[in-house]
Each structure stands twice: as structure tokens, then as C-alpha cells.
Simulated assay, not measured.
Amino acid sequence: MRTRTLFLSPRVNATGQALADAARRRGMQVETLRDWRVPDEWRGTPGATLYAGPLFADVVAGEPGLGLGLLEAPPDWLARLPYELKGREIEFSTVAEARQLRRPAFVKPPNDKSFPARVYPDGSRLPGPDAVDDDTPVLVSDIVAFAVEYRLFLLDGQVRTGSRYFARGELDVAPLDEDPRRDEVLSFAARLSEMGLPSAVVVDVGLRAEDTPRWAVVEANAAWASGHYACDPDAALDVVLRAARPVAEFTAADRQFLRPLPEVVRD
């Protein structure tokens, strides 16, 4: 059986360290890339996987780098969810269209960090064309508040591990299994299994802060770029291994969810 290799970005965060420890316990190799390029001897490494932010992953994941595919939810996935699962109006648009907004809204890029995700008083406060291309996709959402939020690593539609990460307006981290709402979270998450997600993904869910609290999806995230909070690192690694791997290993069902990677020209 070939040895898998976990590649990390130059700036290894706490999740990267936890995943690296989990990988070593399995006998996997762990390598940290020292800059924004893949050394010749590591290009196309058989059995490679990656944990890194989207900008770094765009540079090193594809050819002529590691030769990986990266799973992520479709950029319009959250907007297309039924209202009873998202709990607010969400529009999939472009930043050029969003700049025409004349009301407060929560605006975010779906699958990267090309500009800050936050509440904007109106569209004029969004980054201009000199900073963000007009056709950059965005999600424009009604402003809502969540009383508590959870991160879930999903594999084949099932929660492999989860963590509370936000409560009462501040960071509040605890394993899902220790949270009193565990069964409610899992029951709501089960409703997402047929909602057009890749086989390996991270979904954040939360309990709306309102007179009649209701569960709703906060957002979907790529497993290969998501923090684990208090999730079990071994279970999270299972999801990362499925989400970032050599392109030839992906099933036909998952290929539709591969992140479009830019062409990278090497000297």
C-alpha cells in the first residue's frame, strides 16, 4: 500500500499541526512547502493531499504542481438551498451587481477570500474594480444573527466530526459530542445529505437568534481549507483526504465539484 503524503502551506496553523499529527499516526508523510511553488521532486507525488488556504492552493494544487483536484461546494449552493434550510434570502450575484445595493447586506465571496465577508452598509462600500474584478461571484444575504454555530465535517453526507465554535456573540469552542444540542445539530445536518454537496465538505450550521429559534445553514466550506476548532483531527483528516487528492482518484459524481484551478506558468 502506497504511503500518502500531506502537504502543508508555509504558514502552518493549529489545524495544519493537528492534521499533521493525525497523519503521522497513520504512517503518512508530512511535508511543509517553503514557498509558493512545488519543488520538482514533489510534483505529482502519488497519494498526495493538501491542507492550505484557497489562494495558496490555487498556486500549488494543480499542474505542474501537486496534480491534485480540490472539492468544494458550488458557488451558488447556499443561494439555491430551500428557504427552510437557510432561513433568509440569499442571492448569487457578481460584485459589480452588488455594488449597486442601496441597503445593508451581508456580502461574501462563496469559495475564497478575495475581499472581507461582512455586513456592508450599502454596495458603495464594497471593494472597487481596482481591487476586485467586476465578475467576481458573491453571495448577498439578508442580515441575520445566530445564537450558536457549529462546524461539521461531512463525508458521504454523514457527519464525521463536529464542533461548536460560536455562542452568545463570541468564540466558544467545544466538541459537538459535549454540546447539549448535539442531537438537534445532527438531525438538521441529516437533511443536507441530498442537497447537492460533494462527498467531502465542511458545512457550518447555526441556531437563529430570534423569538422562535430555527436551525439554518450558515455556509459551506472546503474541507482542505477549514479550521477544525474542537473537531476530532483524525476524523477531519478522513474528510480532507477525500477532498484533496490526485485528480484521477475522483469519482464521476465528484468531478462536478472540483474547484477550477488557474493555469500556473513555471519558469
Rank of each mutant, 00 (worst) to 15 (best):
R151W: 05
F188P: 04
P109H: 06
A131W: 14
A189G: 03
D130R: 14
V159G: 05
A190L: 02
L186G: 10
Q158V: 10
D135C: 06
S141G: 11
P82D: 03
D156H: 14
T161C: 13
Y83Q: 09
R164T: 13
V205D: 06
V201E: 05
F153G: 10
P121S: 12
P116M: 05
L85R: 14
L171F: 13
P109A: 04
L192T: 00
D135I: 06
A131P: 10
N111E: 05
D122Q: 04
A209W: 07
D172E: 13
G123F: 07
L186E: 12
Y150E: 12
F188I: 03
M195Y: 01
A96N: 08
D112E: 05
D204E: 15
P180F: 04
D134H: 10
P129T: 08
T94C: 05
E89F: 01
R160K: 15
P180S: 08
Y165G: 07
V119C: 14
V173C: 12
R208H: 04
E97H: 02
P129S: 11
A117K: 06
V132K: 09
V173S: 09
A147C: 00
S193T: 11
D130L: 14
L139Q: 00
P137W: 04
P137L: 04
P180Y: 03
F146S: 04
E84T: 07
G128A: 01
A200I: 15
S193P: 01
P82T: 03
L155G: 12
T136N: 08
L154C: 14
L155E: 12
L85Y: 07
R208Y: 01
S114G: 03
Y150L: 10
V119N: 12
G196L: 03
K86H: 01
V107A: 04
L176I: 07
V140L: 07
G87S: 05
K113W: 00
P121V: 09
E149C: 01
G162S: 13
L171V: 15
P175S: 08
T94N: 03
F188M: 02
A145E: 09
S199W: 04
V132R: 09
V132F: 05
V203T: 03
P104V: 08
F166T: 13
L101A: 10
I143R: 02
D211S: 11
E84Y: 08
F153H: 13
Q100D: 10
V202K: 12
L207D: 02
K86W: 00
D211R: 11
V159R: 03
R102M: 01
D204R: 15
L85C: 06
E170I: 00
Y83K: 06
L192F: 00
P180D: 10
R125Q: 13
V138W: 04
D135R: 13
E178L: 09
R102G: 02
E210T: 15
K86D: 00
S141H: 09
L101Y: 05
F188T: 05
R168E: 15
P109N: 00
Y165P: 07
L154P: 15
E170W: 03
F188K: 02
E97M: 01
S141R: 13
